[in-house]
Design a protein around this nucleic acid. Structure first.
Lengths: 246, 246
DNA sequence: CCAATAAACTGGTATATACCAAATAAAAAC
DNA sequence: GTTTTTATTTGGTATATACCAGTTTATTGG
């Protein structure tokens, strides 16, 4: 009846029993949302394993989405995954509306740049045309959820930076500039985070995350904004309703 | 000018230079598609670092999607990511058509089961109703790309298992049973693989992957099939064109 | 009471070593 | 030449240890 039951066949790795134990504690509610997990060293002592093996288990728990790391502050229980409906909202207005999520937006940088080859192709504009570029980090209950880099055509949104960027820019574009989003091309992929991204999300470098790229089109069918979000993969899921056309 | 240039500010971790070196070799084409990467031990000797540090670098290269592990056979250069358009195809017919991908399908298991609470809710049928369940692994050039578990309502597809499952089941359902897919609800999330899934995809346990769940609806608006795909995250990206409705 | 300092604790990186089991390559037997 | 056996290589797991640099807590000084 032990965690390493020989009757069950192959022997279980040592880190596996730590994973099972922590998973049970989190699922049962013994460890509640945003509660601190035991440290690597503590787990090592409790289970009679080395710190590196305990670390192995904790990284697995992170990947399962049950906990998140906050750098040298420790690891904490993850809140529930939130669902992001890409067929209803190409923007974040849906998130911003829900007060219980505790959404705050931190502006990391804002600047003006000239469109390079890739951006001019995505936005169907001339290479070199002026763009607003701004990077923001979205936090849920002061816990970083994703980074967003957006590129907006300067010609379409004069004096964009005079407005507050700590809100949904889609709402801003719609209400101030009368450019409501009509449709969007979205691409979702899993990839490793680079050093900068990992820092902003307080994750170890080369941790996996989800990248969501979107080109937003206006009612005239022309793209006016390109955005790239880098999500902590354990925090979100993306849903869509698709009609089969091909 | 060394890889660890003190003039650049903070010192670079040792595994970082290994990552940069391998990335350059892969991007430049020095290491071609499906070519074997040096082993953990070899890299350790070449760079004068321990095997565990070399391993650390190789796992990062895997997460970047530049290489894939094939268990104890070694690590190999990843082919290019393929794009899966969820708004055009809720099925795999698009993949099956392309001969250059080298798609082969391995049937892992097929059985009949009774719908549990979760499945009956997804398929809007009575709990306990008979379902076909089959699991398949899809390989691209004999390299596992994703697992698919599908549940089809037995009443709708009599004698489904008399047909060959090494083909697109959507085509089968359409041509043999006259049930073409009309639309689908799709959910995409990143999550850790369990032991069984990792084995089928020849990845280490608790590696991150992408899960794609879809409920397929017929022309009558009723769901007839529920499927779950587990992708090697580095291998695919998912695209969609969304119309803003909300 | 408050601010400065010191100690304790955290995760991140790194090493050297060890054993296992699966996969492959090489050698031996037929 | 083909099969069987053996040796080598591979990644996966595991330990014990060490140092570093941020974070937090406790202590000390004013």
């Amino acid at each position: 009846m032990s965690a390493n039951n020989p009757a069950e066949g192959k022997k279980m790795p040592a880190f596996q029993s730590v994973i099972n134990h922590l998973r049970d504690q989190i699922r049962s509610g013994e460890l509640q949302n945003h509660a601190a997990l035991p440290s690597e060293r503590t787990i090592g002592e409790q289970f009679g394993i080395s710190r590196m093996t305990a670390r192995r288990a904790l990284l697995a728990i992170e990947m399962e989405g049950l906990a998140y790391s906050a750098g040298r502050r420790g690891r904490f229980v993850s809140p529930q995954r939130l669902t992001y409906d890409i067929s209803k909202t190409v923007s974040l207005s849906a998130l911003a509306g829900k007060e219980e999520l505790g959404l705050t937006i931190k502006v990391v940088s804002k600047q003006m740049i000239a469109a390079d080859a890739a951006l001019s192709a995505k936005l169907t504009i001339a290479e070199g045309e002026a763009l607003y570029k701004y990077t923001r980090v979205f936090l849920l209950k002061s816990h970083p959820a994703f980074i967003e880099e957006e590129y907006a055509i300067a010609r379409v949104f004069p004096n964009l930076f005079d407005h507050n960027l700590q809100q949904s820019t889609t709402v801003l574009m719609e209400q101030v500039y009368n450019m409501p989003p009509h449709s969007g091309d979205i691409t979702i992929r899993m990839r490793a985070l680079n050093e900068k991204e990992a820092g902003l999300l307080s994750l170890p470098t080369y941790h996996a995350g989800i990248e969501l790229e979107q080109v937003i089109y206006g009612s005239d069918g022309k793209p006016f904004c390109f955005g790239r979000q880098i999500w902590r993969g354990e925090l979100a899921e993306f849903s869509a309703h698709a009609i089969v056309t091909g």
